[in-house]
Amino acid sequence: MTDNKQVLLSISADGIAELTLNRPEVHNAFDDDVIEQLIAKLESVSNNNDVRALILRSNGKNFSAGADLAWMKRMARNSHQENLKDAGRLAKLMELLNSLNKPTIGLIQGAAYGGAVGLAACCDIVIASEEAQFCLSEVKIGLIPAVISPYVVRAIGERQSRRYFLTAEAFSAATAQKFGLVHEVVASPELFDDACARITRTLSKNSPQGMRAAKELIFAVSHKVIEQTVIQDTAERIADIRVSAEGQEGLSAFLEKRKPNWIQE
C-alpha cells in the first residue's frame, strides 16, 4: 500500500466509526491500494465491539468517480489471471461492506460513478445531497458493472438495472430515491452531519446484537420461497435471540419499564 491518508478511519467516544475516502484531487477514485485500505479498515471495524455504527463518506466535491484511470490502464496490460485476482479484491470489499456486522450509513455528494454506486448499494442506509448524480458508466468504455451487480440489482431492481446498466445514463438523487438506492435526500452536504446524528441516535437505542441479527435475518429470507425450511429457520432465530443475554435484558427492561443496559445516557 502507498499513502494510508487516502482512507481515513476515526471512531468517536460513543462508538460511531467514520470511514472516509480522502482523494479529492482525483474525485475520490479508487485503485487497488485504496481497496486494500478499505478492506483492512472494514475488518478492523467488524472486529471492534465498541463500534456501534459505521458512516462511509468522502472528502471533497464528489463522493467517488469510481475506478482510478491509472489503475484501469495498469489492469488493461495485465493477464486474465491477474485481472481475476484484482477483481476478487473489489468483490471482497463489496461483500465486507454489505455484510458488515454493524449498521452502515453512506453519505453521497456530487458524483457517484461506477463502483461507487456499488458502495452505496452495500450500505444499509444512504443519504444523498440533492445535487448528487449516480451513473453505472462501465459500458461507455467497453466494460460491465460486474462485481457490484448483485448489490446494485438488489437495490434498484432488475427493471431499472436493464435500463441503466445498458444506457450508462446519469440519474439524480431524487431518481435514486425512487429506485430505492437512496433513503433520504438533503439539500446540501452541509446537512449530512445533522441527518447522521439523528439516525445514529436512533440506532444507539437499539440492541447491538438485535441489529446484527436483524441484518442477518434479511439476508436469510430475501428472495427465498416461503417454505418449511425458511419458516423453521426464522422460528429458530427468534427462539435463539429470546434466550440470549441481550434478548433477556431487552425483555426485562421492557417489562420493568426501564432502559436496557446498552443505552448509555
Rank of each mutant, 00 (worst) to 15 (best):
K215H: 11
A111W: 13
F63V: 07
K140A: 15
C123T: 15
S10F: 02
K41A: 08
P189R: 14
L166F: 15
E256P: 00
T167S: 14
F63C: 00
R242T: 06
S129D: 15
A67D: 15
S44R: 06
N22E: 13
P208W: 10
I144V: 14
L191Q: 12
G157K: 13
S10G: 01
Q6P: 00
G250M: 08
I11P: 00
A120N: 03
S129W: 04
D86S: 13
V186R: 12
I226F: 15
C196A: 14
T104F: 14
R77A: 06
L203I: 15
A128R: 07
L42G: 02
L143T: 11
P150E: 15
E236I: 09
A76S: 12
K5N: 12
R74T: 14
Q109N: 09
D14Y: 13
D124N: 11
L54V: 15
Q6G: 06
I199A: 04
R162S: 06
L255H: 08
S129F: 02
F134G: 10
T234R: 12
A245G: 03
D124E: 08
Q160M: 09
A132T: 13
L69C: 04
L54E: 08
A220I: 07
V153W: 05
A17D: 09
N59Y: 03
S64I: 04
K259S: 02
I218N: 07
G180F: 13
G250A: 12
Q232Y: 02
A128N: 03
S10W: 06
L9Q: 04
L203C: 01
A174Q: 12
E138P: 00
A40F: 09
V34Y: 04
T234C: 08
P189N: 07
F134N: 12
L42I: 10
L181W: 12
S204P: 02
L90I: 13
L100C: 01
A195W: 10
G142P: 02
I108M: 12
F134R: 05
A239D: 13
F134C: 11
R242N: 05
A245I: 10
R237D: 01
V26L: 09
N62P: 00
G115K: 01
G88K: 12
R57F: 01
P260V: 08
N22G: 06
R212A: 05
M75W: 03
V230N: 03
V186K: 08
A70Q: 07
Q109P: 00
K41R: 09
A155D: 14
N47Y: 06
G106N: 05
I39D: 01
S252I: 10
M211D: 05
C135P: 00
N22T: 06
V26D: 02
E82R: 15
G142F: 10
V182Q: 00
I241P: 01
D193G: 03
T2R: 11
E236Q: 09
H223N: 12
E82C: 05
A53Y: 15
E184Q: 13
D50S: 11
A187K: 14
A168M: 13
A146R: 07
N49L: 14
I218K: 11
Q37V: 04
R162V: 07
I231V: 06
V221T: 13
K140T: 12
L56V: 14
A87F: 11
V221L: 10
L97M: 05
E18S: 02
D3Q: 06
A13L: 04
L191H: 12
N49T: 07
E184D: 06
V117L: 09
T2C: 05
